Computed example of a mutant assay.
Amino acid sequence: MSQIWLVTGASRGLGREIARAALDAGKIVVATARSADAVLDAFGSENDRLHPRTLDITDAETAKSVAAETVARFGAIDVLVNNAGYAELGFFETFTDAAVRRQFEVNLFGTMNVARAVVPHMRERRSGLIVTISSVSGLVSNGGGAVYSASKFAVEGWMEGFAQELAPLGVRSLLVEPGMLRTDFMDSKSASFGSIEIPDYAEAIAQYRAFVDGANGNQPGDPKELAACIVTLASQDKAPARLVFGNDARQWATAKMDHLREEIAHSVDKI
């Protein structure tokens, strides 16, 4: 039987492209979104290997039900793509506590919910791959992205350790850290901005919003290329633990590593 993929956040953006690339490669794809109808709108109903399901990843019980239903129907989940998420973009003090907690509820705890639902089936078979869509913002944080980066830093720390726990049991992990992709990630469907006005930040926030507006739709990264790369890597027995995708992401990650090396060396000199 063809590989069974479960993809979250599959109705648009990178999730849609990953689901499409997997279908093009002959996989069976259980494509989830907060509305299964949105998945059908994105793909149509002509592909009999596409199976839309409704899943809000913050609902742990529904995640378990979708995973169990998938295994009951197809016998396995070979690849989980934990993709669903969104961004709180703006300066930290402009966000309410509720907004910050919602960012973590979706990006971290929601992603954990889906992993908790799927991993027991993978452990039982001693086989499977978890693809976690993080971001270069999980490695590097900048002004205007502190809250979003905090959630992705948390995802990175969790999966880095969890992957080591799973490896002896035959379950593999791939952390994907893209730079800026040409998706709708920066528009109002995926991004939210702080609601508290603070005059001290007004000018800087206006400049940041202008940057986001200008970047939306003009990002350098091609989501189709990344999706194809993920599908290719998923078919390899020894896929890398991380994929830093895009020249911008590689430049930012490299600069961060260089800066850390300098700080570590400086710290040693001071001891």
Rank of each mutant, 00 (worst) to 15 (best):
G15D: 13
G15E: 06
R16Q: 13
E17Q: 07
E17V: 05
E17I: 04
I18Y: 13
I18T: 11
A19Y: 01
A19P: 00
A21Q: 08
A21F: 10
L23A: 02
D24Y: 09
D24P: 09
G26K: 12
I28T: 12
I28C: 01
V30I: 02
V30H: 01
V30A: 15
A31Y: 01
T32E: 04
T32G: 03
T32A: 08
A33S: 13
A33N: 05
A33V: 03
R34S: 04
S35G: 05
A36I: 03
A36M: 03
D37L: 02
A38L: 11
A38V: 01
L40W: 15
D41Q: 15
A42D: 15
S45F: 08
E46Q: 07
N47Y: 03
D48W: 11
H51M: 07
H51F: 15
P52H: 11
P52E: 14
T54Y: 02
T54P: 01
L55W: 12
D56Y: 09
D59E: 13
A60Q: 09
E61H: 09
E61Q: 14
E61W: 12
K64V: 09
K64S: 06
S65F: 11
V66M: 14
V66L: 08
A67L: 02
A68Q: 15
E69F: 07
T70S: 08
A72V: 14
R73I: 10
A76F: 06
A76R: 11
A76E: 06
I77W: 11
D78C: 04
V81S: 11
V81Q: 09
N82V: 05
N82Y: 03
Y86I: 01
Y86H: 13
Y86K: 05
A87G: 14
E88W: 01
G90R: 03
F91S: 09
T94L: 14
F95I: 06
T96R: 10
T96M: 08
T96D: 11
D97W: 15
A98C: 13
A98Q: 14
A99D: 15
A99F: 04
V100D: 02
V100Y: 05
V100C: 06
E105Y: 07
F109M: 05
G110H: 04
M112P: 08
N113Y: 04
N113R: 12
V114A: 00
V114S: 00
A115V: 06
R116Q: 10
A117V: 13
V118D: 05
V118S: 05
P120M: 05
P120F: 00
P120H: 05
M122Y: 05
R123F: 14
